[in-house]
């Protein structure tokens, strides 16, 4: 793959990032938003890992007869970023579950509509929505 034009990887990564970003900001379903967020982050990982690659290099684990290694630092950074990504997704999913219990919906516009209706009904903000505790 070392023979390929040098910026191809980055451009695909950019396209994928934007696909994820688009899902986050255009979709109203909260679960799908989180999928988009993960897609966005995963594509940033591709961007990082691509920059660490050295042509004809090998995985950065010391081995006999290998002189050219790819850069280990982006790998380390992305290991951390993967963890951050899954942590964020987990917290987001837990929030979605609670939102679903409190509002009976995971669609952004329905949640918005219910908040507005509650505002009108009580004539002030924050009146009605005591969320269920567990």
């Amino acid at each position: 793959m070392s023979g390929l034009p040098g910026l191809y990887n980055y451009w695909i990564a950019v396209f994928l990032m934007m696909a994820g970003f688009y899902v986050v900001i255009s979709q109203g379903n909260l679960v799908k938003k989180l999928v988009g967020l993960s897609l966005f982050q995963t594509s940033v990982f591709i961007f990082y890992i691509s920059m660490g690659k050295v042509a004809d290099g090998h995985a950065p684990i010391l081995a006999e007869g290998v002189t050219v290694y790819s850069n280990p630092l982006p790998h380390v950074l992305i290991l951390t970023a993967i963890v951050v990504g899954v942590a964020t997704t987990a917290v987001g999913l837990a929030l979605v579950v609670r939102i679903n219990e409190a509002y009976g919906s995971v669609e952004e516009d329905e949640i918005q509509a219910r908040d507005n209706a509650a505002d009108k009904a009580t004539g002030r903000s924050g009146g009605s929505g005591e969320s269920p505790r567990t």
Binding site: S2, L7, Y10, S50, M51, K53, V54, G57, N71, L73
Partner: peptide, 12 residues
């Protein structure tokens, strides 16, 4: 950006 795999890239 430096080309993919370029061993002279600043990153390396």
């Amino acid at each position: 950006a430096p080309l993919l795999g370029d061993p002279a890239a600043p990153v390396q």
